[in-house]
Computed example of a mutant assay.
Amino acid sequence: MARSPLATWLLILLPLVPWPAAAEDSAFLWAATGSPDDLGLRTGVALDMPGRPRLGAESNLRRATPTNSGTAHPPMRLWGEVDLRRAAANPASVGLTVDLVSGAARAALRQSRALMDEGPATLSLDRALEAGRRTDGDAVFIARQNLRLFFGGIDTTVTGGVVMDSAAPFHAEFAVEKRLQAGIKLRAVISDIAHEPAARVNARFERQW
């Protein structure tokens, strides 16, 4: 689908708006991510209760390319998430996403752990276990693990990640991310290291408020 005028203006204007930094303290949650080829929007609310339950809706649009037909009918997904532990060094949460159009659904348990938080860099481990139903009705189970090294002085993250999917081959990748002003993020990735390595570089914007 050719990019709509609305999506084009969002791509231009969203990075320029000075959203508040403490997004997690707001009752209303909004997030936008995108690149020249796609745009994703997530909205929701956070309840002032133990675990700070959050819920809302999300959708995305993808531009048509020679190898991708693009998004003809934007999907609408409902999502919910609650904190199991909000400790800064070891947070954990559980969430659920349901696609209203296809009926696909996925529940996920996510955990982060700080391994090193001293000096110019911080090292952390992110893990997630996911289980659900795909659009074709088949069950899927996924385990993800990412080791992240963040250099605060230059706002750069080096990541090594693996994905074990019951419906796909083992996947591993290495990435370097550099955040620029106005929410722009440059990302260089060497993907599918275990099978057929391929390199790519892209730029995206990310905003939440």
Rank of each mutant, 00 (worst) to 15 (best):
L47T: 03
S124K: 09
G119T: 02
P36D: 08
T33V: 05
A32P: 02
A31H: 04
Q181W: 01
L41M: 06
I184R: 13
E173Q: 15
R113E: 03
S59H: 07
A23N: 08
S112P: 01
T71G: 04
P66D: 08
D37K: 09
F151S: 10
G70P: 04
A46G: 15
V98D: 14
A104I: 05
Q145I: 03
N68A: 14
P50R: 02
S191Q: 15
A203Y: 00
L149W: 05
D117Q: 15
R52G: 08
P5R: 08
A31I: 05
G70I: 04
V17E: 00
P5T: 04
P5L: 04
W19P: 00
G40D: 03
G34Y: 03
R86Q: 13
R52C: 02
L14T: 13
F141Y: 10
S4E: 10
R86W: 04
E196I: 11
D25C: 04
A194R: 07
G51C: 05
W79M: 00
P20I: 03
L11R: 11
T159D: 08
L16K: 13
V101Q: 13
E177D: 15
L125E: 01
R86E: 12
E196W: 10
D83A: 11
L129W: 09
G119D: 03
A31R: 15
R85L: 10
R144H: 09
T159E: 09
V189F: 05
E196F: 07
A105M: 08
L29S: 03
E173V: 08
S124T: 08
V82Y: 00
H195I: 06
A31M: 10
